[in-house]
Design a protein around this nucleic acid. Structure first.
Lengths: 194, 194
DNA sequence: CGATTCTTTGAAAACAGTCAATCTGTGTGG
DNA sequence: CCACACAGATTGACTGTTTTCAAAGAATCG
């Protein structure tokens, strides 16, 4: 359970973490299992955890007045899930996070996170790298979102996250891209025809 | 020139930086003036600098095959400008950055940045906070982009950055929102009618 | 197997983009 | 200082894309 996490830390920081240092990290993160459709965060409440996904898949989304879901982000094995804004500022979130499959998570509260960052320089570095990547990924997403037409968005998705197409229902992928499920279906058909 | 930067650092970190520590920072950042329309970064080249805007305004944008500009980000006084992806990875950028007004900047190269981060814990903390804010801002931008219709996007812009409307030409604001200048104009008229 | 959820398809309507012409304001050079 | 040029904004008509609504078909799950 923690082994995967340890590998992840080594990889992302290009280092080998010592037993002593990993000890601190292990203590800060609790194991949490979630069944499909269970919620990690409900709109209106403060985000409790920063969650590392060991197994399973989740989504981070909002629901508008008309009841439509808008998926901001997916998460799979080796990804983090949290509403950083809510977690950091301890403010009510406008988002939901729930499990799309049964999940195994490692979770830490905001205080625990801060403590590990102090105790483990490697973890601190990881957090920094993570923010950076997140920032870059989001910028690319913004770029795709303002530049691309529906079919380009789908092609972009197919290129960047080909596994998502197998793994998640199309209506969710459509929501992620900001297009309707019907458009997704039609564009997809058109692309496959080539 | 550096005074504004010093205030900024104090504010964002909620601390008061010592003369000695600020000395390191001052040494790492060079003053750079830019005339309107001058480029800080050209598509295809590696981003040289992380720039702090003391005065003026800039834009960060791409140009597609059809020659259309897509503005990913604006920058004004007290904001940072750079293509983080290109700067960090030292890879060719797909973006341009140029000055929309005459600018006074403080610039540091990637190596200089890394050095200051080591020398100044406060600067390091600032960098971290910056990434976090950037990350959150970009996420909200993604959210707005996939959820909102044209008029909601404009209303959102008017709420978050009311000063941009005075400061930047409409066609650029339209590009920032991912809508055509004509649609911007029409939606704007419609909103003002109320 | 039945029920639910997801996907596909069609037709109509809403929306945004394009093209072209006009209008406005600003700044530059004569 | 004026006139002209130019960039930006607005408007109208048209086109094309995307959404919406509705219904039918396919797949999945208990």
């Amino acid at each position: 359970m923690y082994e995967f996490f340890r590998q992840y830390l080594n990889e992302i920081t290009s280092s080998i973490i010592s037993d002593a240092e990993f000890q601190h990290i292990e203590e800060a993160f609790a194991i949490k299992s979630m069944k499909k459709r269970q919620f990690l965060l409900h709109e209106g409440s403060v985000c409790k955890y920063m969650a590392f996904i060991v197994k399973g898949a989740m989504r981070h989304y909002s629901i508008d007045e008309k009841g439509n879901e808008h998926i901001v982000r997916f998460g799979v094995e080796g990804w983090w899930m949290s509403d950083r804004e809510s977690l950091r500022m301890q403010t009510p979130s406008k988002y939901n996070i729930d499990a799309l499959e049964d999940c195994d998570l490692l979770v830490a509260t905001n205080e625990q996170l801060n403590r590990v960052k102090e105790l483990s320089p490697l973890f601190f570095r990881m957090a920094h790298l993570l923010d950076e990547r997140h920032s870059i990924a989001n910028q690319n997403r913004v770029h795709a979102s303002i530049c691309y037409s529906s079919d380009e968005k789908l092609l972009d998705l197919m290129k960047n996250y080909p596994d998502f197409l197998q793994r998640f229902p199309q209506n969710m992928l459509a929501s992620y891209l900001g297009i309707s499920p019907e458009t997704f279906s039609r564009v997809r058909k058109q692309i496959n025809a080539k």
